[in-house]
Design a protein around this nucleic acid. Structure first.
Lengths: 132, 132
DNA sequence: TTGCACACGTTATAGCATAACGCAATTGAT
DNA sequence: ATCAATTGCGTTATGCTATAACGTGTGCAA
């Protein structure tokens, strides 16, 4: 799925995420958009739902937050499984891809005849800068 | 960390998880333990916190639920990274380990001088039985 | 023009998790 | 023995995350 023209709400939410230093919760996004007329969580969640579909935003399950995809313009769904390293100190997120990991997980999945829909890989810890 | 003698609340929560067919939310556990005198979410969360430390219970980040570890008796922390396949249809969870995946992820982590604390791998989809 | 799909706005509610207080039991050092 | 520290526990209150249900408007195709 490639991203069509975004609606106003979708654009606003996406811009907030793109300009953010790290992942944001839906409610944090809501607060940042109050001046733009946002009043309810659903406005954010509905926009996020679409942005996730388009592959331009990722959801971080382990911290209930959202980040803009690190590959501007491309559809991230085509890169295989996305993995994240999340620094619990500074909040920064590094997105990466590893085809060998994909290959192993998909191999296991095939051997079990399991039909994967969405795969989450998240490493929480401390980034180099914060490790000092 | 190996599991010491469990307290009453910890035992009750663990038993519920062990007997369950699939993962349970904290509030579901609470409901199942009302007859045992449980009245508040904190009683469950506090027990879960310890059981997670002991490595006898896992948290599924993507569905805000908890499962008993598939390796009764052993400390699951020693098996390397734990991965889960979660069937969105029947709710069943399959726990597995793949050393090659561990190896790749830990290699990446080392290359980035990232210090991992907790790693999540969860594949949501449909199990063989439900795929029909 | 009618019907459908979609985005949107609003209110209300459901579901998940923790803060803050105080009490009781245990342990271990003095 | 006693005191202090630790740990588990119970309770109340609160905060954060997410969705249900309803109605509106707009654009487009049959």
């Amino acid at each position: 799925m490639n991203a069509p023209q975004l609606t106003r709400n979708q654009s606003l939410v996406f811009d907030v995420l793109e300009k953010a230093e790290g992942p944001l919760s839906a409610y944090t996004i809501l607060d940042k958009l109050r001046d733009q007329g946002f009043r309810a969580p659903l406005q954010v969640y509905r926009a996020l739902e679409k942005l996730l579909e388009f592959g331009v935003v990722h959801r971080l399950e382990s911290i209930n937050s959202f980040v803009a995809c690190a590959h501007p313009g491309e559809d991230c769904h085509s890169h295989g499984i996305v993995a994240f390293a999340i620094c619990e100190s500074c909040g920064q997120v590094i997105e990466f891809h590893d085809h060998e990991v994909d290959h192993r997980l998909m191999g296991w999945v095939r051997s079990q005849k399991f039909k994967p829909a969405k795969t989450t890989i998240e490493i929480r810890g401390t980034c180099e800068a914060c490790a000092a």
